[in-house]
Design a binder for these strands. Structure first.
Lengths: 159, 159
DNA sequence: CGTACAACTGAGCATATTGCCCAGCCGAAA
DNA sequence: TTTCGGCTGGGCAATATGCTCAGTTGTACG
């Protein structure tokens, strides 16, 4: 599902001014409204655009502390651990990774002290053998996608 | 900036049906349109809602492989390394964390083989002493915020 | 107990956008 | 040469938006 330049420009525009609307978009891109609409529909059914959910800042919600935890799981306990972690609101994300049957998760907390509570809740579960935590100090590159979109658009064009 | 129940319901609604519009929202929530509009404005200027950017799936863009890299930086090279990583499109996110002056970043690649190229590009920089990579196999809990929003809304109400 | 203030309601209005339709045009593939 | 998918540019009714305003709550505070 490669994307072309126009798709790329649509995505970039949408990222810069999300509330822009199809009509204004078509004006800025210099194409017909129907075209933009068709592209958007395609991007969404393609799964390239998963949605337009609001991006909520945990810090503004009172959870300014972010941490990454690496978990070591007891053999066969994977599914249980996943289910457990899914019930903890402060677990924002969970991945299983290569390595020693490991998992990696992103946590938030109200304070460093509160982080202890969260970690206790996370690791206070039978299948978890060991956990190591790294607290995030800075976030020089916040989650971004535009450079990759531009890369993908350029690549597809180079054909 | 605590949020109340109504804010919470707005955020949840918005997360479930992002394209919903203020009017329809006010109908579903049973409040006046102006109220929803005021709340939304407040949530945005609060910074609770950072935006409504499109959520783009790297996999659909041709980058199905995700990995986390932990980097060890040479003293004083932090800023240079950050600037370097910011230029790599495949670096989706970068954090500095506690530990041995470490950084943690999220990478994507077109394939496992391509991941090698990305890693080479990432670590092929002078200030980086050591790097270890974990490839993501599964993502049992994709990045989510709703449970935390509900938690925060409930907390604020319990006053 | 009374007052002042902030928030919500319900309504109206002009303007802009949406979703949907169509006919015509063009370039690429068969 | 024919066919077909994608783009254009236009029109239409229905709907949403941004804005304003007066009246009503609810609550904190003197």
């Amino acid at each position: 599902m490669a994307i072309d330049q126009l798709d790329g420009r649509i995505l970039v525009l949408l990222a810069q001014e999300p509330r822009i609307g199809v009509l204004e978009m078509s004006r800025r891109l210099g194409v017909a409204r129907g075209t933009v609409q068709a592209r958007l529909d395609r991007l969404q059914s393609n799964g390239v655009i998963q949605g337009f959910g609001p991006q909520v800042d945990p810090a503004a919600l009172g959870y300014p502390v972010t941490a990454f935890a690496t978990l070591q799981i007891r053999q066969g306990q994977g599914p249980d651990v996943r289910a457990h972690l899914a019930t903890v609101p402060e677990v924002l994300e969970l991945h299983t990774t290569t390595g020693t049957g490991d998992m990696q998760c992103r946590l938030v907390a109200r304070s460093n002290a509160d982080l202890q509570r969260v970690i206790d809740r996370v690791v206070g579960f039978d299948g978890i053998v060991r956990a190591s935590t790294a607290i995030v100090m800075e976030n020089p590159v916040p989650l971004r996608i535009i450079p990759l979109v531009e890369q993908a658009a350029a690549d597809s064009e180079r054909t």
